[in-house]
Design a binder for these strands. Structure first.
Lengths: 300, 300
DNA sequence: CGGCCGTTACAGTCGTGGACTGTGACCCCC
DNA sequence: GGGGGTCACAGTCCACGACTGTAACGGCCG
């Protein structure tokens, strides 16, 4: 037979009290049960741990040697339990985050900083990805959560963190660039630069609805493969475009951002609602709290 | 409720087989019992460790984290059991040895060397002591064993390791110094130098009997406080004495050792027979073996 | 010396919990 | 659709750890 933790606990108690009677009281068992279990332990080890006689109990040499061993085993067991407890509370573990390239710029630094401050022992990994990689990565559970723009898909949960103005993006010196604000229909006759609809169809379906509601279909003269590319085309005077105002931070020269009246863009945190992971809960709490206290579009 | 090692063993088995059924076979319990105990563990930890469904079992994130923890606890427990086993076999532990000053010279080096070779992980402490310290130290269990000369006391166990000739000790140039051997009665008219009878009465009672049997009472002209001192007095020509031949090694000049016919001195290892200590058993084995293979009076 | 308090050990009983068997639901694959 | 695999649920059983009661023994004090 191999000893159980109970035997070790019993032995340690006797060793600490140097008395079966007192140890039994402390353990809330009968002295006889305690004696029996310690005897079982001694038989299992094949060695006498305690010298007992009518006037008390003392550790044998072997007992003295085994006492720290037993304590170490118990401590290790407690540690194991504590560790899983902390993991269950999301204080340790691993968290894989994905950031849409066009949001990483301003979202990643404050999010990572805030989370690491609250949960320094969680291993954090981050990745800048395209919207396609982001969605498939979430579905394949490679990422626990991601930061991106809606609309997305129904089977992923989202929470809005930031809403910000949408701006017309014009080349510097464009006739409309001086305006304080614009309506989308003001740009009906302009040449347009947009991203490729293949990148993420839900976005482009929304764009189409927006243009339709503004009463025109844009004359798309160029398709960009990403936001920086798009800004480059606008700066080059190829056409105009429309982006969330935080895209300003991606290019400083050659373009002008003019707010579009009544249009707002959202940044959301996305996760798979089927994933029940304590660290994820904590992330959502942290970013929600963060979004409610600081303006994420201007920080970072 | 707090988990027992059994729960950890069960969990590890399931985690290793990734199957309750196969793990149950390996553990030689029913699958149902195994499922139940793992469920108990999960309830105790307050966390799900395994995802089971109809087509198999996988570790949850927490389970992956807990698996090495559980293994570590089990390994620590095994180690504790192994350690006490080795201690019970006397392979580790502590051994306190005492050597009578007049035997340490030739006994200590081979004994310590041989024992450390066989049991390198036993902590060995040695002390050179007077016969009085030696006996009280053994009785107070400060020493586990000692090396000395008989006669001793009844309540200590002894084993003879070495017997050697007893010699007359004469100043260089003494008329009898040329003899190849002597009888004790040849020294009846000499002035004698002996040690103090207070040091260890049993020895001196034996000396008295020896002199009585030889038919004279020695004319003691000086009392020495130890063997080196005694040899000094003999070398100074104060008188003659009688010592085991191994005492030769304590003084090279000014004295001559002449064997006394028919007299032998013993060196013994002494221990308290009530002390049941595996390391002590091993020591006795080692020194017995050692004494039977090498001549300890000439080694070291 | 005897009574009392302390210690642990022995013996017998009880009850809980871990083991078992039997069964069922479900999924995958042929 | 049947067979082989997964795990879970339900009921029974028994072994072992807990309990109570008792005994043996040593130390202390009147």
């Amino acid at each position: 037979m191999t000893p159980e933790l109970r035997h070790l606990r019993y032995f340690v108690a006797v060793a600490e009290h140097l008395s079966f009677t007192r140890a039994a009281v402390a353990l809330r068992v009968a002295q006889q049960s305690l004696s029996q279990q310690v005897a079982v332990l001694e038989r299992a080890l094949g060695a006498r741990l305690l010298d007992r006689d009518t006037r008390g109990t003392r550790l044998t040499e072997l007992g003295q040697l085994f006492l720290p061993e037993a304590r170490a085993v118990l401590a290790r067991a407690d540690e194991a339990v504590a560790t899983v407890g902390r993991a269950a509370r999301g204080e340790i573990g691993r968290l894989n985050l994905a950031f849409l390239v066009s949001t990483a710029n301003y979202m990643l630094p404050p999010v990572v900083r805030a989370f690491r401050e609250c949960f320094p022992e969680v291993e954090l990994s981050t990745e800048d990805v395209s919207i396609g990689q982001l969605v498939t990565g979430l579905r394949q559970r490679r990422y626990d959560a991601a930061f991106t723009r809606p609309p997305l898909v129904d089977d992923l949960a989202t929470r809005t963190l930031v809403t910000e103005p949408v701006c017309a993006v014009l080349p510097s010196g464009h006739p409309l660039a001086e305006r304080a604000e614009l309506h989308l229909r003001d740009l009906a006759d302009q040449p347009w630069v947009l991203t490729s609809p293949a990148s993420w169809p839900p976005w482009h379906r929304k764009y189409d609805r927006d243009f339709h509601r503004a009463g025109f279909e844009p004359d798309v003269v160029a398709r960009a493969t990403g936001v920086p590319h798009l800004l480059g085309l606008v700066a080059a005077g190829v056409g105009v475009s429309r982006l969330a105002s935080s895209a300003r931070s991606l290019r400083r020269t050659g373009v002008v951002f003019v707010p579009l009246v009544g249009e707002r863009a959202e940044t959301v945190v996305v996760w798979d609602p089927d994933v029940q992971k304590p660290v994820l809960r904590n992330l959502l709490d942290v970013v929600t709290e963060l979004a409610s206290t600081v303006d994420l579009t201007h920080s970072g």
